[in-house]
């Protein structure tokens, strides 16, 4: 689990450490790439052990938003953030927070599967563990098996753990990346369009997996596929780019409600395909 300072400067008086504040709370979050504002005043709560989907047209800031949750945004030169993101009540932007440590708690899966090309299937999954700790080989094997099982890949790869990860199919590679993210036992799993490079069967497998992983992890998934958002998520956030190109959260609510009776006309226009 994430080890962060227990007192959180600037996180708002008295509300940062209560048990009810588990999950991810985004408070007045703004993000910039140089002078271009990419996110404006985002406020939302991603509930623990539930799936939150972020939808919206290209450029609306959904990827930027989730990259702010594991502090990957600031890696881009000129990028900066104001506001706060509380993970289980702890501000991840508080001074003294180690971004590397944070990213162990907040795993991420990207659009295109990106297994380490020179590593075997086993080593791909073990990579994070080897980086962070000296674990005996036997223990390591246990974690790799557990992670591959969780990612619903074990049965397909158990006899070829020493083959390169890149030898797998696209869908398998993506599940390998999920296994790699799970190996370090994160609290949160961020998924940035995890199925956009996959065929429908592989997509269905990932969606099934998301439903299963929900029991253990807080999952945030960015997707262009609205039916996917409808199928896998419990909550949905809809984002749009304002006139100055900054991304704003237009509507956030239960997925069932968003897809049957959205409150905001812009959400309705987007999800019914009458946008722009």
């Amino acid at each position: 689990m994430l080890k962060l300072p227990s007192t959180v400067p600037g996180a708002g008086a008295g509300n940062s450490m209560e048990a009810s504040h588990r999950g991810i709370r985004v408070q007045d979050l703004n993000a910039w790439y140089g002078r271009l504002q990419a996110l404006r005043s985002i406020n939302m709560m991603m509930e623990p052990k539930l799936v939150t989907a972020m939808i919206g047209p290209s450029g609306c800031g959904k990827s930027t938003l989730i990259r702010c949750i594991n502090r990957l945004h600031e890696v881009v030169p000129g990028a900066r953030v104001t506001g706060s993101v509380l993970l289980d009540g702890v501000d991840i932007y508080a001074p003294g927070t180690d971004p590397v440590e944070l990213r162990r708690s907040v795993g991420m899966v990207f659009q295109r599967p990106n297994p380490f090309p020179t590593m075997s299937i086993f080593d791909n999954v073990a990579a994070g563990l080897k980086l962070n700790s000296r674990m005996p080989r036997a223990k390591l094997s246990d974690v790799v098996e557990r992670s591959l099982r969780q990612a619903a890949l074990w049965d397909e790869v158990k006899d070829k753990l020493n083959q390169p990860g890149t030898a797998l199919s696209g869908g398998q590679q993506q599940r390998l990346c999920i296994a790699r993210a799970l190996a370090v036992e994160p609290a949160v799993l961020l998924m940035d369009e995890p199925c956009s490079a996959l065929d429908p069967v592989a997509t269905m497998k990932i969606e099934e997996l998301v439903r299963e992983l929900r029991e253990k992890y807080t999952i945030v998934i960015v997707t262009h596929n609205m039916q996917q958002a409808a199928r896998v998520s419990d909550f949905t956030g809809f984002m749009l780019m304002a006139a100055d190109r900054a991304g704003e959260l237009v509507e956030f609510g239960r997925t069932g409600e968003i897809f049957t009776n959205p409150r905001d006309k812009r959400t309705e226009d987007y999800i019914t395909g009458r946008f722009g």
Binding site: M226, Q227, A230, F259, T260, N261, P262, T267, E268, I271, T272
Partner: peptide, 9 residues
């Protein structure tokens, strides 16, 4: 057509 929201209603 996978209708949602007002179309589905």
């Amino acid at each position: 057509q996978e209708p949602v929201a007002r179309d589905l209603r």
